[in-house]
Write a protein that binds this DNA or RNA. Structure first.
Lengths: 218, 218
DNA sequence: CTGTTTTCTTTTACAGTGTAAAAGAGTCGC
DNA sequence: GCGACTCTTTTACACTGTAAAAGAAAACAG
């Protein structure tokens, strides 16, 4: 529970520091994007914010809580995607959400592992899910089918994006080339796993699942 | 590069300490299984091994390298699964590997996130991939198809297992129940996402992909 | 204007982290 | 005995998250 600044009457008074929930979590995301999750620390964050590390703890109970807020920040864009979809086409909505989710991984490769491991526990995520399932309901998809396909599709998206990042991050490793020489078949197959094919492969797997959903609903 | 103990002539001489690559990584896995990844440290590992933390660094260049070895340890079981499959049935092999992979997540829930984020860069993993793709080749699956389906299926398995763990780990959170009350549709759909359904949902999504593979090969 | 309370921030401190560098021991071949 | 090599501990450093207390500044009450 964030012991947020309970406003009595006042709102803004102390401008010089400029600290706030939003400013802190935005700076946190920026820092993670730049240096990576492993190098992120409250002291470094304080340095870019122009304050001591402990000042952050008045806004966020712990580093964990701050990271949860960053997650919410990343997920915010997704919620809007559902609303932008056709009113009664759950398949189209799922497709749009899937692509938007993968886009987050591309836009914030260093921060994405946060999402991948601890999504969907915050209030913001629940609001998004509610809209998505509401749309499913309107489209005549029963709860069991919605549950199954959401789990299957979201697992796939999550795993795919994580996979993509892992290989992208490790592309510079020298051992990879050496290993590929010793394993001929891996080398041959890997030729089809270059980044340029990723868009197509992702869509291929996604459509495969959405086709099955369409068949189920028909 | 591990600056491994280059054996000149001797093999075992100093038994009292009992340190070795295998002993260390086995103890590391045990410790991670017990306390979780976040609480794992070289000093604690030294404590259970009966040595100072720095002794570990003669066997492993860094904590990172040690964790890579733990990953290899976890993946070792998988390699055997491929060999146990029918000689010319790639689909069956993929199915067995998928279930074995998910089983790792169940057997080592606390260590699994390691796998999920940084698999398939070690020598052991490459050997496994070579066998899997060799089997695909024998079964008449072309490289492009093998690449596509391996990527799709492995992404799905990875994401699914990660998802399962995340919800299992968070089941005790009090905020979850409160949130579900505010979001009726989430609550209704979540009823179909209880752990008891997970086996079936996992197989459902997996077979959906394997069916598509069968269609492609026919 | 004065004194008190509430809202933020810094200071200080502590127990823990990964690991570089050096020093210490035990064992080998000579 | 004497290096040389193999393994382990010691010491040290820079860094981490964050509890506890002190400090400062603004808001409010009189």
């Amino acid at each position: 529970m964030t012991k947020a600044p309970r406003k009595k009457v006042t709102q803004k008074r102390r401008e010089p520091t400029g600290l706030s929930h939003d400013a802190i979590r935005a700076a946190a995301l920026e820092l993670i994007d730049k240096d990576g999750l492993g190098a992120f620390s409250t002291r470094k964050l304080g340095r870019v914010l122009g304050c001591e590390a402990m000042a952050i703890y008045w806004y966020y109970e712990s580093k964990e809580a701050l990271l949860d807020a960053v997650i919410d920040n990343l997920m915010e864009g997704i919620a809007g995607v559902v609303n932008g979809s056709a009113r009664h086409d759950w398949i189209a909505a799922l497709r749009r959400v899937a692509h938007a989710y993968r886009q987050i991984a591309h836009d914030h490769p260093k921060a994405f592992p946060l999402l991948a491991t601890r999504r969907f526990a915050s209030a913001g995520s629940f609001a998004f899910l509610e809209q998505l399932f509401e749309l499913a309901h309107r489209a005549g998809v029963d709860d069991r089918t919605a549950a199954r396909f959401f789990r299957v599709v979201s697992s796939y998206c999550n795993g795919f994006a994580l996979n993509e990042l892992a290989t992208a991050q490790r592309s510079g490793e020298p051992s990879g080339a050496a290993l590929r020489k010793r394993f001929a078949r891996v080398a041959a197959v890997s030729a089809w796993l270059e980044p340029k094919y990723m868009d197509e492969i992702f869509s291929f797997g996604l459509e495969l699942q959405l086709d099955a959903l369409a068949r189920t609903m028909r």
